[in-house]
């Protein structure tokens, strides 16, 4: 009885008693959710266009951020470094397509998945070799990103918003909007959607798969760079950041592997659910439940919708 009270009543009583704390937790969850959504977005882009479940997205985030900071450390002006990093991501996309995807075309999903593991190792090794394994500080000021916090009085206390978090939300929203326009309105965007629908049909109307793959990997690289800047600004740029890729996986299956709106909604659900769960229900279980709570949420959704919330309906034929 007491346990039931602790699970089903007490957390809500706490939420009611301290609305400012609740609002703060909710905001933290939303920001985390936006960042998860950004990583998931990188996954979805690649999965849609090439059917590759790209495990390397997490390390691409780290690699992009490291390149940016590393270049700046060597005296390159911040915005030039940003441009150069984008060039590096393009080179990466190009070489991935040439050396990995093209020889492996038409292999089963699991083989391609494994290949992205190989890519993960390569990027870890390369990143450490070039930039060293030490954590670095993101060049927030040089990129004119705001810092500090805004405090609002209300709800019976204070709610504070980090400015960088607000910036992250705005930039992420902008990015999604740009991607949406790109997908819906441009010629390349249409080609991308055609490839996502059917590789063979796209080939038969003259769309170059190779070109499309370079473009999506490049787009995923740019998304990774944005994510890297945002995460880096909130904590620091280090290789431990790559585990956030594992955080993005439940987001991905919750939203559906092929859906961009799914990635966003999934990210927000997971981010908020995780923070609220950790804050209000975590102490019951002894804390640290963040690592698996997201997966359990996602699993719960999956049992009812096996293709995720927004995923394409899986039609099976004999």
């Amino acid at each position: 009885m007491h346990l039931l009270y602790q699970i089903f009543v007490d957390p809500f009583v706490q939420m009611g008693a301290a609305p400012d704390l609740f609002a703060q937790t909710l905001w933290d969850g939303l920001v985390a959710g936006v960042l998860y959504a950004l990583i998931a977005l990188g996954f979805v882009l690649i999965f849609k266009a090439s059917g590759v479940f790209n495990f390397a997205q997490g390390i691409m985030v780290v690699f992009a951020a490291l390149t940016l900071v590393g270049l700046h450390e060597h005296g390159v002006p911040a915005f030039l470094a940003l441009g150069l990093t984008i060039v590096v991501m393009f080179v990466l996309a190009f070489s991935v397509e040439r050396l990995m995807l093209r020889p492996l075309v038409n292999q089963s999903d699991v083989i391609l998945f494994m290949a992205t593991f190989g890519l993960t190792y390569i990027l870890i090794g390369l990143g450490q070799l070039i930039f060293g394994g030490n954590p670095k500080v993101m060049i927030t000021n040089e990129l004119y990103l705001p810092s500090g916090e805004l405090r609002f009085k209300g709800l019976g206390g204070f709610v504070s918003f980090q400015k960088i978090d607000i910036a992250a939300v705005i930039i992420a929203s902008l990015m999604v909007a740009v991607l949406a326009v790109f997908f819906q309105r441009t010629r390349i965007g249409r080609a991308l959607r055609a490839v996502a629908d059917s590789h063979q049909a796209a080939l038969s109307v003259g769309i170059s798969l190779e070109q499309i793959w370079v473009i999506v990997w490049f787009a995923a690289g740019v998304v990774a760079l944005t994510t890297g800047i945002m995460w880096g600004a909130r904590s620091e740029v280090s290789f431990s950041l790559q585990i956030i890729a594992l955080k993005a996986l439940p987001v991905l299956i919750l939203g559906g592997l092929t859906s961009i709106p799914g990635a966003i909604v999934g990210g927000l659900i997971i981010g908020v659910g995780e923070k609220l769960g950790e804050f209000y229900w975590g102490p019951l279980l002894g804390g640290g439940i963040e690592t698996w709570f997201a997966y359990v949420i996602a699993l719960g959704f999956l049992v009812f919708r096996p293709q995720g919330l927004f995923g394409e309906k899986i039609i099976e034929r004999i």
Partner: peptide, 8 residues
Amino acid sequence: LILGALII
């Protein structure tokens, strides 16, 4: 680096 490359 080598392990990753070899896997691919």
